[in-house]
């Protein structure tokens, strides 16, 4: 143990482990597609950990396999091995290196978490009603009062807020209620939907609540999840980055049909979203209005 052979073989093994780890970390196909601004942040962080983890995995498992083969009992040898009781520098090495790695990961995770908006739930300015965005559509007015049936306290303490570098009101605020076994989305202007529809590239805030038991709102492609908690408002803030049709999954056991509590999160282009809003506003208008004629579904 004292003379660790720093041979060419060790060097080659080291390079190989590094290359394989980098390859596994970068090329892993384990994720669904990225559809929110937070998704690449989470994925890059995971890839970093996967790279380090793969290197560690190969080294430890490799050591186990090599030692098991190399130091197996030879037939007829009933003696003991060499009595090595420890090695202070080696032990210090494998205490300090993991300690440094986890400290780096800890600091990095705080940074990723900050960029994700983790430190800003409920952090939207109170006076969020003057719009600086060019030509916001009527539907996108932030924080309309009377948004549906569930009266939501405006400030949620828990959840994921906006990235601190881009302060400002959300372009679209949707109230999300979880119940056994469905999600109800309340839009400004009284649109009620069983599906989440959002425009791509816009700042969306979900005010999440639960009517009966705990549910958990999860869109895997957004890499975002937040429990819907009875009695305590929570929120998610995101910008969808890719047009598409994604699953909304309930991730907290909520009863016998928990697995069936699924719906869609549809990310539209801005025009498609406006069309969806106007269609639904007409469709959901009181029956004595003109809306009945152009009911699409």
């Amino acid at each position: 143990m004292q003379q660790v052979p720093v041979s060419l073989l060790t060097l080659v093994a080291g390079v190989l482990v590094t290359l394989v780890s980098l390859w596994v970390g970068q090329a892993t196909p384990l994720f669904p597609e990225q559809a929110s601004e937070q998704a690449p942040l989470v994925d890059n962080f995971f890839r970093l950990m996967l790279t380090i983890g793969t290197a560690l995995f190969i080294m430890v498992e490799g050591a186990i396999v090599i030692f098991m083969v190399k130091f197996r009992q030879k037939p007829g040898d009933e003696t003991d091995g060499e009595p090595l009781e420890g090695n202070l520098s080696l032990e210090a090495f494998w205490t300090l290196v993991p300690a440094i790695i986890v400290i780096i990961l800890g600091v990095y995770s705080v940074q990723v978490y900050t960029e994700m908006g983790g430190f800003a739930p409920g952090g939207l300015p109170e006076m969020a009603h003057h719009h600086t965005h060019p030509a916001p559509t009527v539907e996108m007015v932030a924080h309309q009062e009377g948004a549906g049936m569930s009266a939501m306290p405006p400030q949620a303490k828990y959840g994921i807020g906006a990235n601190p570098s881009e302060r400002g009101p959300a372009d679209l605020t949707v109230s999300v209620s979880g119940m056994q076994y469905a999600w109800i989305f309340n839009y400004p202007d009284g649109i009620i939907s069983g599906e989440l529809h959002v425009p791509v590239g816009k700042r969306v805030q979900l005010n999440i609540s639960a009517l009966d038991v705990i549910h958990s709102f999860w869109v895997p492609q957004f890499r975002l999840k937040q429990d819907a908690i009875p009695g305590q408002p929570t929120e998610l803030f995101f910008v969808a980055t890719r047009v598409g049709d994604y699953p909304v999954v309930c991730a907290e056991l909520c009863g016998a049909y928990h697995g069936g509590m699924r719906t869609r999160a549809v990310v539209h282009t801005e025009e498609d979203f406006e069309r969806w809003v106007s269609e639904n506003r007409i469709a959901q208008a009181p029956p004595d209005s003109e809306g009945l004629a152009i009911h699409l579904h």
């Binding site: 942040l41 989470v42 962080f45 995971f46 950990m49 996967l50 983890g53 560690l56 995995f57 986890v102 990961l105 800890g106 995770s109 990723v112 978490y113 994700m116 983790g118 994921i160 958990s216 999860w218 895997p220 890499r223 975002l224 999840k225 937040q226 991730a251 907290e252």
Partner: peptide, 17 residues
């Protein structure tokens, strides 16, 4: 190793439950 990845809040928010 998978426990370390789970222990960090950013990744856990995706893979929790």
């Amino acid at each position: 190793i998978s426990g370390v990845t789970l222990g960090t809040a950013p990744v856990d928010i995706h893979v929790h439950d």
